[in-house]
Design a protein around this nucleic acid. Structure first.
Length: 415
RNA sequence: GGAAGGGUGGCUGAGCGGUCAAAAGCAACGGACUGUAAAUCCGUCGGGUUAUCCCUACACAGGUUCGAAUCCUGUCCCUUCCA
């Protein structure tokens, strides 16, 4: 069914990871003939990655699974400059310490998906600050700058669009392309990397790197990009109830992570199963064909599998059990976000407004009150109307109290 | 360096002396309908221990006014054109 001979490209293409490639035949042949180190660049702007970048992570995982070497490039150097793409001016520059902290957090994510080490197909994590920090401007211009054609860059979509829309486009931003191209060449020299992958928005930058490689006399380099992923309703991937869907457990609990997948629109189920799980394709086809409310079973499997990859089987099972208990049995699940009262508070009582806030069900007291007046607040599944009601030891004597904001967000209060 | 136009809520973007916590759209949240889906409809959407009361907000700092997002001055930043 596949036009590809290499397992890697065959798998990725069947699963919908591939949007474009600079040279399908060449890359396919290379993958057949040797262990191919391939990399993807990631920003070090946050302490975790969210599911928006999960597709990239999965590509690296498949690369490793099919016998090649994944390389994770942290943009430590580029982050230090500050990504100018965002239009908001007041973007604070990250300190080196903060960048290191972010890198450490991101590394924790990758450790779940890739096997790091010294072996030939073990994953590697590198930082472009290693070489970017030492660039000498004149040397860079002389050695690399001469290979970039302004004419060509102006013709590229990423640039052309900006110019046509008369949006600001700074020199710094323009140079990101050069830096990223240089990265590719440098990584090839240092680590023998032949392939760079990324989202389709990176196409221009990656291909420019491929070109630079050719001019600089590296072996042939390859570019492979994935489609930009949106949910079928047009929402950007990675946002859900109240915020970004982080992969790190300390940023977002496995239970909430599981919920994210459980709540995916019907139309996305099959696509997501292919991209975010490693289930066999025929199994996925079967699940995707489920109609009506049966498709909920497929969503559970999606949630299980995706959560297992990110947090381990045990956490996934726990998340599932909690979901089952709260949604299907109407009981309390162990994994629900919890608020614990100390002795003092138990004696004096804490108002429901406070508790809703503390449980993360409302971001402000005002919002909590709103919830009450809209009828979205429930205590032990009974609609609650008095936000000032105090909860204390007496209310908790019979066991934990369940708070709900709407139908999906739940939390417990314990002593 | 010169000229012009700008900086408004999470975003886009109206308002250009009072009726402005600020139109509209998007996003988000709650409700109805369902299947913990989508679409649709209704409602909410700065904060404060719900109060027709207070606080904070229309880049920043001052000023003019009974009253300023709206006028004036200065500062910072952005955009476009010219050099």
């Amino acid at each position: 069914m596949s036009r590809f001979k290499s397992e890697f490209l065959a798998e990725l293409s069947a699963r919908g990871f591939i949007q474009d490639c600079s040279d399908y035949e060449g890359l396919d042949a290379l993958l057949k003939s040797q262990i191919v180190p391939g990399y993807i660049g990631f920003d070090a702007t946050a302490t975790s990655l969210h599911v928006g970048g999960l597709m990239q992570i999965m590509m690296l995982r498949w690369l490793q699974k099919t016998g090649h070497k994944p390389v994770v490039l942290m943009g430590g150097g580029t982050t230090r400059v500050g990504d100018p793409t965002g239009r908001d001016e007041a973007r604070p520059l990250l300190t080196p310490e903060k960048i290191e902290e972010n890198k450490a957090g991101i590394r924790k994510v990758f450790v779940k998906y890739l096997t790091f080490g010294e072996g030939p197909t073990d994953a590697l994590m590198i930082d472009n600050a290693e070489w970017l920090d030492r660039i000498n401007y004149l040397d860079f211009l002389r050695d690399y700058g001469r290979h970039f054609s302004i004419n060509r860059m102006l013709a590229m979509d990423s640039v052309k669009l900006r110019l046509e829309r008369e949006q600001a486009f700074s020199f710094l931003e323009f140079n990101y392309m050069l830096l990223q191209s240089y990265d590719f060449v440098e990584i090839n020299r240092r680590y023998g990397v032949r392939l760079q992958m990324g989202g389709s928005d990176q196409w221009g930058n990656i291909v420019t790197g491929v070109d630079l490689g050719r001019r600089m006399g590296t072996p042939d380099l390859y570019a492979l990009i994935s489609p930009l992923l949106t949910m079928s309703d047009g929402r950007k991937m990675g946002k859900s109830l109240g915020g970004a869907v982080w992969i790190n457990a300390d940023m977002l609990s496995p239970y909430e992570f599981w919920q994210f997948w459980r709540n995916i629109p019907d139309a996305d189920v099959e696509r997501f199963l292919k991209l975010y799980t490693e289930l066999p394709l025929d199994e996925i086809a079967r699940l995707g064909a489920l109609g009506g409310s049966e498709i909920n079973e497929a969503k559970k499997i999606l949630a299980d599998e995706a959560t297992t990859l990110a947090h381990g089987r045990e956490a996934a099972e726990a998340a599932k059990a909690t979901a089952q208990a709260t949604f299907e049995a109407g009981e309390l699940g162990a994994d629900l976000p919890a608020v614990t009262l100390n002795a003092e508070e138990a004696a004096a009582g804490v108002s429901l407004v406070q508790l809703f806030q503390r449980a993360g069900l409302a971001s402000s007291g005002k919002e909590a009150r709103r919830l009450f007046s809209e009828g979205g607040a429930r205590v032990n599944d009974q609609p609650a109307s008095d936000p000032t009601r105090l909860i204390g030891a007496a209310d908790l004597a019979a066991g934990p109290l369940k708070l709900s904001a709407g139908k999906k967000r739940h939390a417990v209060v314990t002593l």
